[in-house]
Design a protein around this nucleic acid. Structure first.
Length: 465
RNA sequence: GGUCGGGUGGCCGAGAGGCGAGGCAAGGGACUGCAAAUCCCUCUACACGGGUUCAAAUCCCGUCCCGACCUCCA
């Protein structure tokens, strides 16, 4: 097959992706800081990387995907104080919410999901290496810092120069050699959780965990490091600095997803314009939310609006409806296949918008084939659509989305509705349209849509909107 | 101040020197008792000013506007 091309934030170019180990791909994605409920931006990030993972898997790679949970961090402690709860209780609560949100949009769980607090030992080992080789220092107050001026390749991801950085306003220069030095480890303050280290009791700085956990599960070097655009600096820059200073090759390629915006502005916890997943899921189904969030290119901003979400959901239902009809007509389960157009689009830096154009084409041809009664063409187009939806994680036949009414209940409903449709048919035969329309309207009031197709009337339950 | 994105038709949204992505909406048509669904047709855009080129939405220079990051963030 033609090879997969991917963008790399470090070079800002799209290039051929070649994994370190043939047939295997190792990915580290920065997951959630579990300090508040997930919004659709978080979910978008997970969906983008899930699509990458599914595409790699489809192409025969064995994928190891590590997505961390940051369960100890300043904000977690702050929020716990506000909510008058234990920090670990708070972290667990939100971790569960994230897990539920990921599941609602059919994100395959990572191969492993390490928590920062479970990897203190690995962090201490990493600090040991960095202090021994002179990249880091412990000034004696319990903190441990990286000395950024001693790093050879600092800031190569974001393309900045140390001297151009605005030093943090709140930086404490009592112990730092340079205001831009960043903390690997933070000394314990009274009342805060802490773990013992050779340099004093404390807790991890934000960046150290990812370096330590990436090394633990993926080794010195791995293929892809992902996360949101806002993590490039400082988080990824600092992770890279630490790991490289320890002598590791670290990430070979960096992928960053863009945001979900509102009125052009990034959705974020601090701006208070977050759209919580649970709220959106009252408006559309999980599969529709996924379709919407996955439809933009991962490096493009996705400007949220209710109208766009609704439009997207309607478009998805059209596709879904075609697949269901195709299954009924062909009388067999549709097998997902990959068209060469879809493959080309996905191989071009996961060009989902171009891939969606191929689905539109399949849909148009498929519907035409239903009108023509051309079973082989129905099967071909439905197969290519289903194959594409499987990669996008939006396969309506995926058992993950099945839920709801049991097939037994559905059979009963089918029987009952068929009775009503028989009444309607005989009314229509008598040209008693008053009665036939009353039956259709009655069913509609119950949320059941009737469509008269060439193959006879067809009923479906209206999706919530 | 430094760094990085972006501005495309009524709307959304790709593309990145030539061969008009796609979707939605709108209008017209086919089908239909009506409706729904479906199909066909129509609508030709790249912030502004220069430049390079046989050819620019795409490359270069300048300007305007929007957003992001600069140690909390997906």
């Amino acid at each position: 097959m033609p090879s997969l091309n991917l963008y790399d934030t470090a070079t800002r170019e799209v290039g051929v992706f070649t994994p370190l180990v043939k047939g295997e791909v190792s990915i580290y994605v920065c997951g959630a800081t579990v300090q508040s409920s997930p919004h659709i931006g978080h979910i978008r990030s997970a969906i983008n990387f899930d699509i990458l993972r599914r595409w790699l898997t489809k192409n025969g790679y064995t994928v190891t995907l590590i997505r961390n949970v940051t369960d100890i961090e300043d904000k977690v402690l702050q929020k716990a104080l506000q909510e008058k709860t234990h920090w670990w209780e708070l972290a667990m609560k939100y971790e569960r919410e994230f897990t539920a949100a990921f599941s609602a949009v059919n994100v395959i769980p990572p191969t492993y999901e390490p928590r920062a607090t479970g990897h203190i030992t690995q962090m201490i080992q990493l600090m040991q290496i960095l202090i021994e080789n002179g990249s880091a220092y412990a000034p004696g107050n319990g903190d441990v810092y990286i000395e950024v001026r001693r790093l050879k390749h600092y800031l190569t991801l974001s393309g900045q120069r140390i001297d151009d950085l605005q030093p943090a306003a709140d930086t404490d220069e009592t112990y730092k050699k340079d205001p831009r030095d960043f903390a690997l480890w933070k000394a314990a303050k009274p009342g805060e959780p802490s773990w013992p280290t050779p340099w004093g009791a404390g807790r991890p700085g934000w960046h150290l965990e990812c370096s330590a956990m990436a090394f633990e599960y993926l080794g010195e070097s791995f293929d892809i490091h992902g996360g949101g655009l806002d993590l490039i600096f400082p988080h990824h820059e600092n992770e890279k600095a630490q790991s490289e200073a320890a002598g590791y090759g670290f990430a070979q390629r960096w992928l960053h997803n863009a945001w979900v915006t509102q009125s052009g502005e990034k959705m974020s916890k601090s701006l208070g314009n977050s759209l919580l997943v649970e709220v959106i899921l009252e408006r559309v189904r999980g599969i529709e939310l996924r379709w919407y969030l996955g439809s933009a290119h991962y490096r493009s901003m996705l400007e949220y609006s209710e109208a766009a979400l609704d439009e997207s959901a309607v478009a998805f239902r059209r596709i879904e409806s075609f697949l269901k009809r195709a299954t009924q007509i062909t009388g067999s389960q549709i097998e997902g296949t990959i068209s060469s157009e879809f493959e080309a689009a996905m191989n071009d830096d996961l060009a989902v918008p171009a891939a969606l154009a191929t689905i539109s084409e399949n849909l148009r041809r498929g519907n035409q084939s239903i009108t023509d009664g051309d079973i082989p063409m129905i099967t071909k187009n439905a197969g290519e659509i289903r194959g594409a939806l499987q990669i996008l994680g939006c396969d309506p036949f995926d058992s993950h989305f099945a839920g709801g009414s049991s097939s037994e209940l559905r059979d009963v409903m089918d029987g009952v509705i068929s009775l009503a449709l028989q009444e309607r048919a005989s009314a229509r035969d008598r040209k008693d349209f008053l009665t036939s329309d009353a039956i259709r309207d009655g069913l509609l009031a119950l949320g059941i849509t009737i469509e008269d197709t060439a193959q006879g009337p067809r009923w479906s339950i209206m999706e919530k909107s």
